[in-house]
Design a protein around this nucleic acid. Structure first.
Length: 502
DNA sequence: TTTGGCTGCCC
DNA sequence: ATTCTGC
DNA sequence: GCAGAATGGGCAGCCAAA
């Protein structure tokens, strides 16, 4: 496919690569979601929004609804054919539109595009707008997909699509990502503390500029990093985890705190959340890519290149060894270090799971069309006789299990929420259906958090806010328990308190 | 001016 | 993020 | 073993409605 484009219309190539990578020029975002897309489709194809929503539940994907609506519409004029460049340029205009009335302008641009589609184009247009293009190449490896991957990979080193695309065009031999990643394989195990923070690639250029990229390649420079490099260090790329840090108590803080940092127009004098950067790898140093080197060598170079500055910049605690006992020792030490490092799977997380009651459900999308895709769970407060919302759950069940659960709960659907259901107003969107409290599901999670949306144990640890679960997933259905034997609000509160270190 | 919903991006 | 599925 | 497709909580920022 890529080759075809090069031969026929080379000017389409850049637009194609951008679209396939779900990116826009200049890192702009469309700022458009399902709601506005539904509106645009409904106006373009003369259907009501309710009709569209109804069909979406049935077909499981908005794009399919768009295609059906287009093909069932009598067309008086044959529209002028859509080109890739036209779509790409319109996306650019949608992204640029901001401020008062921008939503409507974005919508009108989408509508224009939909009006110009011919049958199946509307499907792909919808997916592109939702940034969910799925290219189903079942045949041989698509060079386009490879190109996109390589572009995405290289992008973290050279943030300029156009340059890369032109490099590809000029016939440079492209190494596959897998080929590159293979070289990362090390024979010896390396253990590292797992910090509850955020991944960052820190680039430092010869000219003294910093650029910082997140895991997904977005630029996220908030302020110039404070790190002490040795004099010989002229340029580098570091792989780091940034963690919120309380300088007074000398303690790491959870991700929930870190993520309250401002994301735009950051004023250096206004920084509220202290941060420590933990470097664990160096990918580039003084003009040389190190990714072909062994991890140990990269780490040695890392250690040689910087001075540690506790609470600001440190090396991630790591152990490299092929010795099982040594690794075991390391893990035990990391548990003892609880107050110094933020650990998983040790004293803090819910080692055990929790038993919760499904009280409502949402229709599924895609391959879960026609089933419930996720369920609202509650714990039980025996004193108040209330089922209090705690989280939704959408993973952990096999396809067969999901079908069973959908049909068994589907037969217990009720018109409205029961009086004993405490769910609050901030759960949006509201469930598609409510159901009787009949089942108990064992659920595993990584952490408990104070929640802006869920109500479990409200009034016990926080007067107004409830507790929720991080990374909830189904373990099994508890046939042996009734909903009134589910985990109680008090127990949830205890689990929350137990995980706070000190 | 405040509130609430939606989006994108973190995990 | 976690999990399951098909290749 | 990997990629793809389902799905989770929660934050700031933005825009529109109240």
């Amino acid at each position: 496919m890529l080759r075809t484009i090069i031969v026929t219309t080379p000017e389409d190539l850049i637009a194609t690569v951008y679209l396939c990578a779900n990116e826009n020029q200049g890192e702009e975002e469309l700022g458009i979601g399902k709601g506005p897309i539904v509106k645009a489709i409904s106006e373009a194809f003369g259907k009501s929004e309710a009709e569209i929503m109804e069909k979406t539940k049935e077909l499981g994907e908005l794009g399919l609804v768009a295609r059906r609506s287009r093909s069932s519409q009598a067309m008086i004029y044959k529209p002028k054919p859509l080109t890739i460049v036209k779509v790409f340029n319109t996306f650019g205009q949608i992204a640029k539109e901001t401020g008062n009335g921008s939503k409507e302008k974005k919508q009108n641009r989408m509508k224009e595009l939909f009006v110009a589609t011919t049958d199946c184009e509307s499907l792909y247009l919808t997916r592109l707008l939702q940034a969910k293009l799925r290219l189903n190449f079942t045949e041989t490896k698509s060079p386009l997909i490879e190109a996109v991957k390589i572009v995405k990979h290289v992008f973290s080193v050279v943030p300029a699509y156009d340059t890369i695309v032109h490099a590809l065009l000029s016939g440079e031999p492209a190494k596959s990502v897998g080929e590159i990643l293979d070289k990362f394989q090390d024979t010896v195990f390396t253990c590292e503390y797992k910090y509850d923070g955020q991944r960052e690639h820190i680039h430092y250029m010869e000219d003294g500029r910093f650029e910082i990229f997140s895991k997904s390649g977005k630029e996220t420079l908030r302020s110039t990093p404070m790190l002490l490099k040795k004099p010989f260090v002229k340029s580098f790329i570091l792989d780091c985890e940034v963690v919120a840090f309380d300088r007074e108590k000398k303690k790491f803080l959870p991700l929930q705190i870190l993520s309250t940092r401002a994301r735009k127009n950051v004023n250096v004098h206004n920084i509220k959340v202290g941060v420590s950067t933990l470097a664990f790898d160096m990918l580039y140093l003084n003009g040389q890519l190190l990714i072909h080197e062994n991890l140990n060598i990269r780490r040695e170079k890392l250690y040689e290149s910087f001075e540690e500055d506790p609470g600001c910049f440190q090396f991630a605690t790591a152990l490299t060894s092929s010795n099982v006992d040594e690794i075991q020792e390391f893990l035990e030490a990391s548990v003892k270090d609880g107050c110094e490092d933020y650990m998983e799977d040790s004293c803090c997380s819910i080692g055990d799971s929790v038993d919760l009651v499904p009280i409502a459900a949402y229709y599924g999308e895609g391959k879960r069309a026609g089933l419930f895709g996720s369920h609202l769970l509650a714990c039980y407060d025996g004193e108040k006789n209330e089922f209090q919302s705690i989280c939704k759950i959408g993973t952990g069940f096999s396809e067969a299990e999901l079908e069973d659960l959908s049909s068994s709960l589907g037969s217990k659907v009720i018109a409205t929420a029961k009086k004993c259901y405490q769910v609050g107003d901030s759960l949006k969107p509201e469930p598609d259906v409510w159901c009787e409290p009949t089942e108990v599901w064992e659920v595993k999670a990584a952490d408990l958090t104070i929640s802006p949306t869920y109500l479990a144990a409200t009034g016990i640890v926080d007067p107004n806010k409830g507790i929720s679960l991080r990374f909830p997933r189904l373990v099994r259905v508890r046939e042996d328990k009734t909903p009134y034997e589910a985990t109680s609000s008090e127990q949830i509160a205890e689990l929350f308190k137990a995980q706070k270190r000190n």
